[in-house]
Every structure is written in C-alpha cells, then in structure tokens.
Design a protein around this nucleic acid. Structure first.
Lengths: 199, 199
DNA sequence: CTATATTGTGAATGGACGTTCACATGGAGG
DNA sequence: CCTCCATGTGAACGTCCATTCACAATATAG
C-alpha cells in the first residue's frame, strides 16, 4: 500500500496538476483533499507534507490557468503569422477544448473558492483581463494590417470575441456535450469577422 | 421565538422564493437548509413540514427561473412592437439585471445540483433551449419585417445574441461589479445589429 | 369551548470533509 | 552497513450540514 517517496518539488507539481484535473473533470465539489490524494496515489494526510492546507493548494490554481490560456495564444502565434488567421484558429481551439477549459467558469462560479478570500477573485479577474489584453493586441495587429476597421476599440473587439464561443461553451456544457459547439463557433466567427472587417 | 403558523401552500412559495434569493445572492453554497429557514424566520426542521427534503426544494428551482426569463420577454413584447426594438431592449435588460440573473450560471455550474440527479441538468438545458427558441421567434419576426437578413438561421441568431451580453456578464461578475456591462452591451448590440441587418 | 390536525421547536444522529498527530518507512549520506 | 530526516500512513477529532423525532403551540371544525 505504501506509495513511492518523491521529493517535494515534483510531488507539489503532481498534486497541483491533480487538483486542476479534478476541477476540470468534476468541478470544485470534486476537489476534495481525499480525491486529490487518491488521484496521486497517496493518503489525504500525506498532502499536508507538501502543502500547509487546502488553501495553499487552491492558491496555486489561478496561475496554472493563466499559463494554460497563454499557452494557447503562444502556440497559435508560432503556427500562424496572419493576425486574423490567428484569431480564427484561437476561436476554433476554444471550441474544441471546452472539456479542459471548463475550469475557468467552474472556478469562476465556485463560491467556496472566494468565501473569506476576496483576493482570489481579484486574481482570477486579473487572469481574464490579462487574456483579454493579449487578445486586444491581436486585434490591434489586425487593424494595423488593414483587416479590421480602425474605429473599433481593441478592448471591445476582444470582449466581443469571447461572445463568439462563450454561448456555445455554455450550451455545450448544459447539454452534457451534445451541442455542436465547434460548428456554431465556426459560423459565429464568420459573421463576426465580416462585421468588423474593413469594407 | 415561535414563528406564526402559515398554510403549506403559502409557506412553500415563501420557501422556494427564499431559496431562489439565496441562490442569486450567495450562490449554491449559501443555499443550506439553515439559511433558507433563517430567511423565512423558521427553524431548519420546520422546512420538512413542507418539503420532504432538500431535493424536493431544489426541484422547484428550474421552473422559477424559466418563469423569470419568460417574464422578461413578455414584458418587453408588451411595451414594444418593433422586432429589433424588442431585441435591443432585451439585451439592455440582461445587462441591467445581472445581479438577479446570476442565478442561471450559478445554478448551471453548481455541480452539487446535478450529482446523482442527471435529469436536473436536462431540465436546466430545456429552460435555456426554451428561451433560445423564444429569442429565435423574435429574430424570425425581424426577418419577416425585412430588418434581418433571411439567409441567417434564427437559432444561430439567437445563440449569438447571447454573445452580446454574456461576456459582459462574466466580466461584471469576475470584477465584483466594476465592469461596465451596460456600456459594453450597448456597443456590442450595435455591432451585432449592423452585422445581421439587411443591406 | 374543546378536540384534533397542522405547523413549529430543539435536541440528537449520521455522514462528509479538512486537519492533526503519533508512528512507520524508505532512501541518501557517512 | 547504519543513521537520520524527509516522506507516507492510519486513526482520531472538530465542524458543518441534512435529516429525524418527540414534544409544544396554534388554528380550526364541531
């Protein structure tokens, strides 16, 4: 029954990843110390060798999400040079990776995560704003390339970009995975692209 | 300390309303039997005179939400005759009533609500689809009135309509009420309206 | 006014979860 | 090979919550 020993550095990574996985798959409710421990093959009390408590573990999560989101953008930017092409690909990625990206709304609407920890909500908000700001840069690129009308603010463009896949994500989630989020996102993107394109 | 007696019919309504209020204000976590009882001025065990258990109480909630959503549409349709005017007003209402309408995402992402009750998720999905279907009719009206291009499916139009205010709602929520959802929704609606308008 | 059914109360129960602690174990350095 | 510290274990504790139950209070019918 005894689990292999592991140095704290690796174990911490393993534990935070397990927590993120549980959050994505089962939501905040499934994120119990027992469940985390089970997932890494340990006993609940063993977690306390590496984290002072559940709070310390939860505090790691916003950063993991930020890295994940920015990872998507970075990957797209490496593959594609065209500004609008990048955005189109990003929309598609969001529609395809709903399963993993459920973490964001699930964490956002998990009250237990904020109760007594208002700074956590601010951190999540900062992550979202950071992502929107990055999207805004992409739209500004598209404007400089003459692909998007210059009278539209990048911040508005970025926020509305969320509207391209977010409703589809919600419907996909509510339908238990049946709603065709990829198809809807493709159509919505085309409409949005034409709406903001230079005439 | 003894609370006034009340017939089950009225008490049930009072209790379900209290539950809905708690859900809107504090989220699913705040929806404990003790909190519900406190809000109606009773003791937890008294709730069981009117509901067989928490499950029976929770089962009432989707219908309450449906009535609320359809109430918005009905009110707008009474006030305004023009199809596009109705939709514009609906978008504005959604942006203004974020505080109350938080119930929808809060319930949607409350895993505790579904665990062991898959039919509840289906019911919420049915409520959302019903609302989208109603929105689709409004867009079909606008198409018949020659205000919206006929080659766009009403279902797509309705879902994308959610994208007009939904990202603003999420940002408003994440920012703790600071994000200007009303302003963003107004701008987003204008862009969307022009994108789908007959040329 | 009195009897009875309905509604409200307070204490107690059981389960889930986070956390602690005394003890066991394994692996790296002497 | 042996020692010692970091890591893992299992049992126990406190808390919170939903639920139950014996009892009290109240309204209403007769």
């Amino acid at each position: 029954m005894a689990a292999l020993k592991m140095d704290t550095r690796s174990r911490r990574r393993q534990i935070t990843q397990a927590a993120l996985g549980l959050l994505a798959e089962q939501g905040f409710r499934g994120l119990s110390m027992s469940a985390v421990a089970r997932r890494v093959g340990l006993v609940p009390s063993a977690i306390y060798r590496h984290f002072s408590g559940k709070d310390a573990l939860l505090d790691e999560i916003p950063d993991l999400i930020r890295e994940k989101l920015h990872g998507h953008v970075a990957a797209v930017c490496e593959q594609i040079a065209d500004a609008m092409g990048r955005l189109e690909q990003l929309a598609a990625i969001h529609a395809e990776m709903l399963k993993e990206n459920q973490v964001v709304p699930r964490l956002l609407f998990a009250e237990d995560f904020y109760i007594g920890h208002p700074e956590r909500k601010e951190r999540i908000y900062a992550v979202v704003r950071g992502y929107l700001s990055r999207l805004g840069e992409l739209f500004a690129d598209a404007q400089r390339a003459g692909q998007v009308r210059r009278n539209l603010e990048p911040a508005l463009l970025a926020t509305m970009f969320l509207g391209v896949f977010q409703p589809a994500a919600v419907l996909w989630f509510a339908s238990g995975g049946h709603f065709d989020a990829v198809g809807h996102t493709r159509k919505a993107w085309k409409l949005y692209r034409d709406a903001i394109a230079t005439k």
